[in-house]
Structures are given as C-alpha cells and as structure tokens.
C-alpha cells in the first residue's frame, strides 16, 4: 500500500531564494510526526507545498497514491488535507459556529448548511468552545482562536492534519489541554504533522521527528535520537556550541 503522503525531491524557489530544497518524505497512516527547524527553515513553505498554496518548482507530492503536486488549496481540503495557520485566519464577521460550519460544508461531508450546523456544534463542544458558538469570531482571545482553527480543521474530516504552531502563544495549562486534544484526534485515526517550536509538545507527542534546516531535511528519526543528533544541535545553536556539546554534553547544556 502506498504511503498516505509522499514527497519526492520537492523544491520551492522564490526568486533567488531556495525556500525548500529536495525534500524526500514518506508519511504513513496513523503517524504523529513533529516537524521542527529554526525560524526561516522552510517549515511553513513545506506545509504550503503539501496543501496546494504554493506549487513546487521541482519534485512531486503524492497523497494516497495520487499526484497532487498541482492541486489548488480547495482541492486539497476536499481530499482530506486540512491545516491550521500559524497566524489564525477566521472569518471575522461570522459567528464561531459559522466558521466551523464552513469547514464542514465545503470540505467535510455535510450536504446542507443545516447538517453542517449540527456537525459544527459537535466539533466546537469537543474543543471546548461550545459556549462561544454564537459570538462573533473577531472577539475571541488568541487561545480560543487557536481552538477555533482546530475545530474548523476537524470539521473538514481530515485524513492528514497539519498543525502549524497551533500551540504558540499558549500558557502551560493551555498547552496541556491542547496536547490532550491532539492525542484524542490522533486516536480517531487522523494522521498528524505538528509544526512546532515547543520541544515539550514535540517530544511528548511525536513518534518521529523531522528537522528542516535552510530548506533541506537534515534529520528524520525517533525524537530522542534526533534531538541528540550533532547536525540538529548545530542547526539550532551554531557549529562552535555543537562541538562543545559533543565533548561535554552536560556542561554545554548548563552553559
């Protein structure tokens, strides 16, 4: 059986900048994958290439065996490729419920707005926004907006969910709640790619971690092994620190 998602030699060039360079990647059904990398490493660009926002300059993207390199974002959404945005993107003048209905109506399985309304309400209850259903999306706080993004993505009945910094800007207890929620989504059989800066989230959820640096995939493996990989340490902290870390791991981590 083919992988759920398969990238072969995917590159993206913006003018003179190689944002993503020759990425090869297989994602199997049911995996939870962490995608990390320093700022500007190309993480969001990679997500955009998978969801049809950008078209790869070279290489192919296959989803469930079909070549989707040239798909438009709405086609990706209908195929079951849902994503949340690092910068949340609500429909500000609609209610919270209507925001989620949009996902259910256009990418999920709901045939009419009435069915979408019921479906959306369930997703809102699940992320803990049931009480806010009829308030305008524009007045939500940042943590609530992040949950709204999540509810909207869930309403799209995703097979693969790409969570782009869904935990950024949340406090510790809010993060614990989010971890719980992501685990329960994964338990429903949704494959998840987490794009994340918070190592706590990455290490506690991911079965496999990918590291992107200057547009190229430099590591791919179990979380612990990847974190200790000298190339990864170097990408984050620079060559000199990485050399010290290799000699005296404990001393370096104290410094």
């Amino acid at each position: 059986m083919s992988a759920l998602l398969e990238l072969t030699g995917v590159s993206k060039r913006f003018g003179g900048i190689d944002a993503v360079r020759g990425v090869d990647l297989r994602v199997e059904r049911g995996e939870i994958i962490g995608l990390i990398g320093p700022n500007g490493a190309g993480k969001t660009t990679l997500v955009n290439l998978i969801t049809g926002v950008h078209r790869a300059t070279a290489g192919t993207v296959r989803f469930e065996g079909a070549d989707v390199t040239a798909q438009r974002p709405h086609e990706a959404a209908r195929r079951g490729l849902a994503r949340t945005f690092q910068i949340v993107q609500p429909f500000p003048q609609m209610t919270v419920l209507e925001n989620v209905m949009a996902g259910s109506l256009f990418a999920g399985a709901s045939a009419t707005p009435a069915i979408a309304r019921e479906d959306a309400m369930q997703h809102l209850e699940r992320v803990g926004l049931g009480a806010q259903a009829h308030r305008p999306a524009a007045i939500l706080t940042l943590p609530s907006r992040k949950r709204l993004e999540l509810a909207k993505s869930l309403a799209m009945k995703p097979r693969l969910l790409l969570l782009d910094e869904v935990n950024a800007g949340l406090n510790t207890s809010e993060i614990d709640g989010a971890l719980e929620l992501i685990r329960s989504i994964a338990a429903d059989g949704v494959t998840i790619i987490l794009i994340e800066h918070l190592m706590k989230v990455v290490l506690s959820l991911s079965q496999r971690v990918l590291v992107l640096h200057q547009g190229a995939l430099i590591a791919d493996g179990p979380p612990r092994a990847v974190v200790d990989d000298p190339r990864v340490v170097e990408a984050y902290l620079g060559a000199r620190f990485a050399a010290r870390f290799a000699q005296h791991p404990t001393e370096a981590s104290r410094a």
Binding site: H74, F85, P92, E98, F106
Partner: peptide, 22 residues
Amino acid sequence: GRLGFGLRCIAQNEDAAEMVGV
C-alpha cells in the same frame, strides 16, 4: 445554499475560504 455561504466566506477572507474547501 452553499453558494451564499461560500460567497460570504470569500467576502471576509478569500484565502481562508479557499483553505476550507470553497
């Protein structure tokens, strides 16, 4: 219908509308 809902999504945020499958 769907068309009206989709158009309202487009009016408010066209990129987000495309992302949810409109």
